[in-house]
C-alpha cells in the first residue's frame, strides 16, 4: 500500500522533506486539502449536508456587487472594477461542497459586470478574458457574447467580433444592443476593407 510522505506543520499538511505546501521536488500539492480544511473549520465540526449554503458569503458578495453597480452607474469605473474583483475573489473561494450551479450563476454575473467596467475603461484584454469566462460559465447567456464582441471590436479583431456577436444573437435574437454592436462591427469591417 502506497503512502504519501507528509507531515503537519503549523496546522497545515506539508510535504515531509521540505515542509512545503506545493513541492515541485516531491511532485505534491497539498493546497486542495488545506483549502478544504480551512472551509471545514468554519462549519464548527459539522459535516456539510448536501445543498447547504452559508448565507454570510452570499450576502457579502451581493453587497459588493451592489457597490460595484453604484460605482459603475456613477461612471467611477476604477472603483467598480475593484469592488467586482473583491466580490469575484470571495465567490471563487466558495466552499467546494456548496451547489456549483449557484456559484456559476454568481460568478457569471460578476465577471460580466467587471467586463463591462473594463470595456468602459478601454482595457480590452481584461474585458476580453472576463467575457470568455462568462461564456464558459453560462454559454446560453447572450450578454457574455455581447461583451466578448465589444472587447474584440476594441482590440481591432473585427471578424472575430462579428462571429461572437452572431453567436450571441442565436441565443437571444431580440437583443437590440447586440444588433447595434453588430452593425458597428460590420461598418468597421467595411472601412477596413476600403483602406
Amino acid at each position: 500500500m502506497s503512502t504519501v510522505d507528509l507531515q503537519i506543520y503549523n496546522d497545515k499538511v506539508v510535504c515531509g522533506k521540505h515542509k512545503k505546501e506545493v513541492c515541485s521536488e516531491c511532485n505534491q500539492s497539498f493546497i486542495e486539502i488545506n483549502d478544504l480544511t480551512r472551509h471545514l473549520k468554519s462549519t464548527n465540526g459539522q459535516v456539510p449536508p448536501p445543498g447547504a449554503v452559508l448565507p454570510l458569503r452570499s450576502q457579502q458578495i451581493a453587497k459588493m456587487r451592489e457597490d460595484g453597480n453604484t460605482h459603475f452607474r456613477a461612471q467611477r469605473h476604477q472603483e467598480a472594477i475593484a469592488a467586482y474583483t473583491n466580490a469575484i475573489n470571495i465567490a471563487f473561494d466558495r466552499p467546494l461542497w456548496e451547489p456549483s450551479q449557484l456559484a456559476r450563476e454568481e460568478l457569471a454575473v460578476l465577471l460580466c459586470n467587471r467586463s463591462a467596467a473594463y470595456i468602459a475603461r478601454k482595457e480590452w484584454v481584461d474585458a476580453y478574458v472576463d467575457a470568455q469566462g462568462v461564456i464558459e460559465l453560462k454559454r446560453p447567456w447572450s450578454k457574455g457574447h455581447f461583451r466578448l464582441g465589444k472587447a474584440l471590436i476594441g482590440m481591432g479583431r473585427i471578424a472575430e467580433a462579428i462571429e461572437a456577436l452572431n453567436l450571441g444573437l442565436m441565443f437571444d435574437p431580440e437583443a437590440t444592443e447586440i444588433q447595434k454592436a453588430l452593425k458597428e462591427a460590420e461598418t468597421g469591417l467595411e472601412a477596413e476593407e476600403d483602406e
Binding site: P50, L96, E98, P99, S100, A103, L107, G133, E136, L137
Partner: peptide
C-alpha cells in the same frame, strides 16, 4: 452526494487559474 457536487464545483474553480 456531497463529493459529486464538489467534483462539479471544482470544474468552475478551474476557471480562476485559466483566467
Amino acid at each position: 452526494q456531497t463529493a459529486s457536487e464538489m467534483v462539479m464545483h471544482e470544474k468552475s474553480k478551474l476557471l480562476e487559474k485559466e483566467t
